[in-house]
Design a protein around this nucleic acid. Structure first.
Lengths: 197, 197
DNA sequence: AATAAAGGTTAACAGCGTTTGGAAAGCCCA
DNA sequence: TGGGCTTTCCAAACGCTGTTAACCTTTATT
């Protein structure tokens, strides 16, 4: 019975089309411009259909957020296995986050509720920033022997630096000026790493 | 002619009532719940009246943002005159920002577009973060003799640390856990100041 | 072929920011 | 005191939004 399979494939296709369309509209006109009706228009379905794939608009955003964090986390794991020294790993991760924010700003915006992207349900966000089995946390712990509590503090500061820098840059700098901010960011990251070692 | 004066007083009163009501609703139910119609309901006017005081909802938010930044800046100036040592000044300023975010979270949210508060016009924000005549910038410059460019970089990192810490805390931590985060924040700030000196 | 199920749409609800047109009230001058 | 004018104010509407209910039409099963 290939019919059922075909239908499931179609379902997955439509679902990913919805996500893709939401991102496209957001990239073009900002998240404020993303509406259920506009997405429905693009995928050539009526608005109620979207509710067969996503419980609500908020859940759609949460899906995009979760996918974004998952993609980042995969990259983190890759870096962890490619490089040995934790200071190198952390620098690579910082670079990786920066690149992500430049290449997929609309996803980054949903992940951190920036620029009018607002996803109310925070479970994914909170969980993802958590220290449990977190590659970044582990790298900081490897950087220099210290207590778990101390590592957590440093980990927290790491995120403040990273998230703070990128989000401030994203919201205050015009698009053309962003490449100029990258070396300043990376330099700050390196100094931070040195200060912790 | 006291009549005109009375009317102007009334106008100012209504205007500040609008701002006050917006903040109250936001504090109670979040910025997502703030609507022109609800504000109108509370101040016992019809919705169109609000447009005699504010060009748009966005401009209302921008006013609240500007007032928030102005209040902070006043505090900064006060600190600047009370304390001599720049490291003490900066620590006091960090404490001041933290207190502000705890005492008036709804204003802080508008100032930095957090938690569903979204003010599109960024002029005030960009200008306020600027280095021109900025007390924080000057304090960092006094901290240790260095080039203007170097000061600007440090100033930028200062804001990442401060803003990053508070906004991450605000969005991830439940209300009761926030006091617990304060010493971690202040310790991070002090370490940052030491690392720059 | 008749019946059940799935897929999809139209229309509506309640709410939003914002604008228009006109009513009511207050004021000034004769 | 009455008429005209200005100011103050609001009901209603427009075009959006997320979401739901009811219905129709196509597809699959018995």
């Amino acid at each position: 019975m290939g019919i059922i399979e075909r239908r499931e494939r179609l379902k997955k296709q439509v679902r990913s089309d919805i996500v893709k369309t939401a991102k496209e509209i957001a990239r073009e006109d900002g998240w404020q411009a993303v509406s259920i009706r506009k997405i429905a228009d693009v995928i050539e379905y009526s608005p109620p259909i979207l509710y067969e794939y996503f419980e609500s608009k908020d859940k759609l955003l949460e899906t995009i957020r979760a996918e974004g964090f998952a993609a980042l986390r995969d990259e983190f794991e890759r870096i962890k296995h490619v490089y040995r020294q934790p200071e190198k790993q952390l620098a690579e991760i910082a670079q990786c986050i920066w690149n992500f924010s430049v290449e997929q700003p609309e996803v980054f915006q949903v992940m951190f509720n920036l620029e009018g992207a607002y996803c109310q349900s925070k479970q994914v966000y909170i969980q993802e920033m958590n220290i449990i089995k977190n590659p970044v946390w582990e790298m900081i712990a490897t950087l220099r022997p210290k207590s778990g509590e101390m590592v957590t503090k440093t980990y927290y500061e790491w995120w403040c630096l990273t998230y703070g820098f990128i989000s401030i840059t994203m919201t205050t700098q015009p698009r053309h000026a962003i490449p100029h901010a990258e070396p300043i960011y990376m330099e700050g990251v390196r100094r931070f790493i040195r200060s912790v070692m």
